[in-house]
């Protein structure tokens, strides 16, 4: 899906837990997530802390979308 959307020329950032799969499939902008069942959260933390984690990942995603790249890039 990432690639087919990006093929229209729209930049896509893939937030995903298993980065190697995303790389194999061919996403270009990749931001690692927390865990498979809760990629943008952490149930062991308080609600506010979770939102901070979520915000940090999404800010990284926006950064990735602003960054010119020529090849697959993981934004750690």
């Amino acid at each position: 899906m990432v690639k087919a959307i990006e093929a229209t020329g729209i930049a896509v950032v893939h937030i995903c837990t298993i980065v190697p799969i995303s790389q194999t499939v061919g996403a270009n902008r990749i931001v690692p997530a927390v865990a498979i069942p809760h990629p943008l959260g952490d149930p062991t933390k308080s609600h506010e802390e979770e939102k901070m984690i979520r915000r940090a990942i999404l800010e990284k995603a926006l950064e990735a979308l602003k960054t010119p790249i020529t090849e697959q890039t993981v934004f750690n």
Binding site: T8, V13, T17, A33, L65
Partner: peptide, 26 residues
């Protein structure tokens, strides 16, 4: 299937002037 979904979604977003996509995966 995934490719087909992406192509359809992409076409719609393009038409509606969307600039970027955040795609989350578990």
């Amino acid at each position: 299937n995934a490719k087909k979904f992406g192509t359809e979604i992409g076409a719609r977003l393009k038409k509606d002037g969307v600039d970027a996509v955040i795609l989350t995966s578990t």
